[in-house]
C-alpha cells in the first residue's frame, strides 16, 4: 500500500511540474535542467534496485521518494557531472573533429585519385610513354633514360628555331621551376630537340643560356631523336634530308611530361596551363607519388582493392 502511494506520488510529480497544480511542490530547483527530468526513468530503476536489495517486503518495486530537485536527488542518480551535449565545448569539438576528418578524407581521396591516374599512365609491362633513349646533353655528355632515375623530371620537346611557342613555354618552365623550388620540389628540366639537323649541342647550349640555368638540352642523331619522340608520343615533322642552311620550321606537339624518380611517366601538361596552374598540378602529383615498392605492397595488402 505504501509503495502504491509512492508510485502515485511519483507519477504525479512530473505532471505537477508542468501543470503547476500544486505551487508548493514546484521548487525553483525543479527547473534546474532538462537533463535531470529526462533522467527520471533511470533514477527510478536505480531506486527500485536499491530498495529491493534493502527491503524485500514490497510486492512492487518502489520508486524514488525524493522529488526532483530535492537535495540529494542528483547525487543519487548521477555520480559524475553529465556531458552537456549542447554546450559550446561540444560544438567546438564537433567542428574541430568534423573539419579535421573532412580535410583528411578529401586530401587522401585526391591523392588516391592521382595515384590511380599515375598508375594507369605507367601502364602494365611496357610503358605507354617514355622508354629507353640515348642522347647527348648540350655539354656533349651522354644522357640516357637512366639519368632520369632518382629525381622527378620534366621533359619538353621543342626546337631552337621555334618562332613563338617554344620560347614562351621555356620561359614558363623557368617560372615553374622557381615556384616549385620555393615549395622544396626539385625537378630535373630537360629540353629535347625535334630538330637534330640544326640543333647541335653548341647551338642548344647557346640557346638555353637565355633560359633557366637548370635546363638540360638534349640532342642526338636523327634516328635516336625519332625513336625518343616516338616513345614519348611526340609528333614532329622535321625532314630527314636537308640542304645546309635551309630555313624551315618544325611542327611538333607541345607538352610537358612529368616523370617520376623511377623514370616512369606520371602526367602530361599541355600548353593550356599557366605557370601557376602547372605548378599546382605538379606539386599535387609529387605529393601523391609513392615509390614502386610502396605501391606494390599496398596493392597486395588488405586495402589492395582501393588501388584496383
Amino acid at each position: 500500500m505504501l509503495a502504491r502511494s509512492i508510485i502515485s506520488k511519483r507519477a504525479f510529480s512530473s505532471t505537477r511540474f508542468f501543470l503547476n497544480v500544486n505551487p508548493k511542490e514546484t521548487k525553483p530547483e525543479n527547473a534546474k535542467s532538462t537533463t535531470e527530468i529526462n533522467s527520471n526513468p533511470v533514477s527510478q530503476q536505480q531506486q527500485q534496485q536499491q530498495q529491493q536489495t534493502t527491503t524485500k517486503k514490497y510486492s512492487r518495486r518502489p520508486l524514488s521518494s525524493i522529488p526532483i530537485g530535492e537535495e540529494g536527488y542528483s547525487s543519487q542518480t548521477m555520480k559524475k557531472k553529465p556531458v552537456e551535449f549542447l554546450s559550446w565545448q561540444s560544438f567546438v569539438l564537433f567542428l574541430v573533429v568534423g573539419g579535421g576528418l573532412t580535410y583528411l578524407f578529401r586530401n587522401e581521396k585526391e591523392k588516391l585519385k592521382l595515384r590511380k591516374e599515375a598508375e594507369a599512365n605507367r601502364g602494365i609491362g611496357k610503358p605507354l610513354i617514355g622508354g629507353p633513349f640515348n642522347l647527348i646533353t648540350h655539354d656533349g655528355k651522354p644522357f640516357t633514360e637512366k639519368d632520369l632515375i632518382g629525381k622527378f623530371s620534366i621533359i619538353y620537346f621543342g626546337f631552337t628555331h621555334c618562332p613563338d611557342i617554344c620560347p614562351d613555354e621555356l620561359d614558363k618552365l623557368g617560372l615553374m621551376l622557381d615556384n616549385l623550388k620555393k615549395q622544396n620540389i626539385e625537378l630535373q628540366p630537360i629540353f629535347i630537340t625535334c630538330d637534330p639537323a640544326r640543333d647541335t649541342p653548341e647551338v642548344i647550349k647557346d640557346y638555353l643560356s637565355e633560359f633557366h640555368p637548370d635546363i638540360i638540352g638534349l640532342t642526338g642523331d636523327y634516328d635516336e631523336i625519332k625513336k625518343c619522340c616516338r616513345n614519348y608520343r611526340v609528333y614532329f615533322s622535321t625532314p630527314r634530308d636537308l640542304k645546309p642552311g635551309q630555313d624551315y620550321l618544325v611542327d611538333h606537339s607541345i607538352f610537358f611530361y612529368l616523370m617520376d624518380p623511377e623514370g616512369e611517366f606520371i602526367d602530361v601538361l599541355g600548353r593550356n596551363y599557366e605557370a601557376e596552374g602547372a605548378v599546382e598540378k605538379i606539386a599535387k602529383d609529387v605529393a601523391a607519388y609513392e615509390p614502386r615498392e610502396v605501391r606494390e605492397r599496398k596493392k597486395n595488402g588488405s586495402f589492395g582493392w582501393l588501388y584496383k
Partner: peptide
Amino acid sequence: FAKKEESEPPKR
C-alpha cells in the same frame, strides 16, 4: 654569311 646566320636560332 647568310647561310651561317640561318643555322643559328634567333636569340631573345
